[in-house]
Amino acid sequence: MSTDTDIRTPAPPPPEAPREPGRRRSATRLGDRVFAGLSKGSGITLLVIMGAIAAFLAYRAALALSKNEGNFLTTFEWNANAQPPVFGIAVLAFGTVVSSVIAMVIAVPIAVGIALFITHYAPRRLAAPLAYVIDLLAAVPSIVYGLWGALFLVPHLVGPYEWLDDLLGWTVVFSYDGGAPRSLMTAGILLAIMILPIITNVSREVFRQSPQTHQEAALALGATRWEVIRTTVLPFGRSGVISASMLGLGRALGETMAVATVLSPSAILSAKVLEPGGGTFAQNIASAFKEAGEFGRDALIASGLVLFVITLLVNGAARLIIARRKEYSGANA
């Protein structure tokens, strides 16, 4: 933090000799400068932190990559402690993308449904408390979701997975041989449950702001409730829903504990998402950290850098979409 203090207190240059005889005036000028400098310095501190995150992760990652005997992008296994070290992110990248995509496919339609339910379908008396409860659920810590997922959800998914195997097993993707379903699919389902409140909250906020006059006009033309929503609410809220989804995606990509508790990691890259195996960036860092030596940590930091860049891109894209509509921002969701 030493760099911070340097920047946060930029000693303001002493005020120049007062132009007018009034002494108070220069005093207020000094106060203004100090305060403006302090607040500007805080803003710069934030930028410096962001820059430092990128710089330090990149530096450490470069140390690790220079000694890697495997191909960082295509190697399956993660043996950073081996001599010579061999590690790659192929399995992690695949697992991260697959679990997040599963989470999005499940969560986005349901979240939009709940948001519409709260804004347009629920009985008035129910709507406000419901919105409130969903707000609170967004605050449940991820480790609690992880604990619940590992001890409650996993055992309860055996039945549905066997059923999926019966119905859709021929697609290979949904084949399932029994055993503990600690798989990417389970991780995806748990992530979906986790990001549901966030996506719901932002979407609800957008739907609530869709102009009342448009909706009343549609009603006056004889539209049914669904037609009102389809012609006025959804078009208005589309960009909001997209950015809400991307905020959810960003959270799903970087989620550590919930995935680490429900996934049995292995260096397998398989399309069978119901079968145990695979891994994600964040889960791998949490699981491999305790056994990692100095070099192993550098290797984990390299994978963390990839995760950082991916989430940066996703969040940046979400922000650019939001920026076109300034009124709502997901940051306070």
């Binding site: 934030l46 932190i49 962001m50 995150i53 992760l57 905020l247 960003g250 959270r251 990509l253 970087g254 989620e255 550590t256 964040a282 860092i285 949490a286 963390g304 995760l307 950082f308 989430t311 940066l312 996703v314 969040n315 940046g316 979400a318 922000r319 940051a331």
Partner: peptide, 9 residues
């Protein structure tokens, strides 16, 4: 963008 940094990063 910073709001979206994964906590592990």
């Amino acid at each position: 963008v910073m709001t979206g940094i994964p906590s592990i990063v």
